[in-house]
Amino acid sequence: MTHSIHASASDETVLAIQGLKTQFSTQDGTVYAVDDLSFNVKAGEIVGLVGESGCGKSTVAMSIMRLLPSQGQIVSGKIMVNGRDIAPASEKQMQGIRGNEIAMIFQDALSTLNPTMKIGKQLTQPLHIHKKMRQNEAREYARDLLDRVGIPDAKTRLDMYPHELSGGMRQRVMIAMALSCDPQLLIADEPTTALDVTIQRQIMNLILRLRDETGAGIILITHDVGVVAEVCDRVVVMYAGKEVEGGPTKELFLNSHHPYTLGLLDSSLDLTGDRNAPLRAIPGLPPSLNHLPQGCRFAPRCSYRTDKCNEMPLLEVVAGDHVTACWHKDALKKTQTKP
């Protein structure tokens, strides 16, 4: 088993999504949960997909893994993994990809792990399927994996059931399973949201360490702006199915050019802001995907809106990699409002 030590971001693009559109048929009509999304992930890079509930970020993950429910369907777009477009791939081909080239970890390890199967068995399954390992070899490998993710007493744990482990341990097991076949792309859907704060930090550090060790590209889906700030190299901000802003983390935090991102940053609580000032909130609610406004989807809640906003803004460059979809991007001043 080799670990390749990579520098933080090589130039090799692991994932390139172009124009992804995913639709859902609901009782009230067809909605586009993901509407024309494009972004890249390089090897060793952590890209954060940020937004509130209903923005479509989880649907992106499900689209890549082709784990959409029956009402969901990819309508158009390309999903290039290592240069191959997997969007039209068959289910059989996807089975060869899942767990192998692309792996995923979920929010709630307890419901994602099989409660009736021992940890060891669950870990060795992908090894049998993708790497064609024999039983003994796989078990050794699994024990090593548990060590790598920081589970003490790995040998005994192999014979335990998921409910016998704590939340943090289960999350580590899920990460171990995801890494077992050396994936090039890891999708982490809210991996720390259900965990306690101190455990959250442990898992975040673990993900960073594993990124350094394996050089995998990681998509981190979260609604927690703090996690994004500390862990992600680049960020894509989503709202109502579309990307509203994207770029390097530093750029987005120090030099945001979209009212929604600014609003999100403003309303994110931290440990050093003025305690006595009223909290800045984004007024109103995210729109229902069945009743989208004409033009910019954030406009109804935006204090910069003008008539021009009835026309859908396009993603335009602000500087280098940094893009934003707002007609008024030049009027926005820089952020980091907290003193």
């Binding site: 704590s166 101190t198 930090r201 500390e230």
Partner: peptide, 25 residues
């Protein structure tokens, strides 16, 4: 102290490194 150290802050920091508290509850 460990709790405060563990909280991810919504601020960009260069090379942010935070120690995690070891062990489980």
């Amino acid at each position: 102290q460990a709790l405060l150290e563990s909280i991810p802050e919504p601020k960009w920091e260069k090379d942010a490194k935070h120690e995690a508290l070891k062990g489980e509850i």
